[in-house]
Amino acid sequence: MPELLPEDKKRITPKRPRDFVCWAVALAIVGGLVYTTVTNENYQWPVVFSYFTTESILDGLVLTMILTVVSMVLGTLLGLLLAVMRMSHQAPISGLARLYVTFFRGTPVLVQLIFWFNIAALYPNISIGIPFTDVSTPVDVNALMTPLTAAIVGLTLNQAAYMAEIIRGGFASVGRGQYEAADSLGMRGFTRLRHVIIPQTMPAVIPATGNQVIGMLKETSLVSVLGVAELLNSTQSIYARTYQTIPLLIVASLWYLIMTMALSVPQSVIERRFSRSTRRPAAATTAVEPAAGRPVSTTRESLL
């Protein structure tokens, strides 16, 4: 065996007791949890599996998804409008947006939901029409505000306030120079916003919006108090009959978990796509290939 030179010897960091202790503690906790979930019969795993794909549960699942998508889309559009209003130089416009955000972020969404459901107590009849004309249609608010409408209105209006703040943060991340460059080309308000500013807010807005979608998915469970048959409400109506509360709550939890995990995949993809134009490829930072075409003088002697 040839002699190993000192400069060729490997450097080793020996494992220390704390490395093993950490593993032991973590394994003990997980092991204990697994043991109790398997052996404690009160979990009633057979009941969980039997209800996991019951029709009413799946219907509730679909409604949860619809509520999430609808509230998220409408909330984002309204949030964008609020964010643009907030940036306005007209004090009354930005003030209105600020008032909205303060109000809807300052009160619990559960209270807001119940409030919208009972809005008919405040305004029993409204009429939609063109001012100063006879054209108008009376609307019975009580009939209009079904639990589902109240749920969508409540979630959307609340979401808009949070999205407005996220989008405003995105606007703040775009430098003044970008506005000036657009101005100097003669671009005007909407064109500038649509083609120059909004695309640049995306790297800041997209990840935060992803979190909002996941939050919204879970927040939809609140509308179960209005009797909307979404996922949680569907499980509740089953255990109200069978008293199998825990296994059915596990069914709901597992579905929520599956959906949030599924959502985190597209989020990371979108995040990567939007960072493309701003990310600087490692190679480009140091070695920039000389431009083809007409050679350009790069010495300063001739100029000085």
Binding site: G175, G177, A181, S184
Partner: peptide, 15 residues
């Protein structure tokens, strides 16, 4: 639009 402007910090649109 009839006046071209070149900025110290370039201000190209990164998107």
């Amino acid at each position: 639009a009839r006046i071209g402007m070149v900025f110290q910090q370039f201000n190209l649109f990164p998107n």
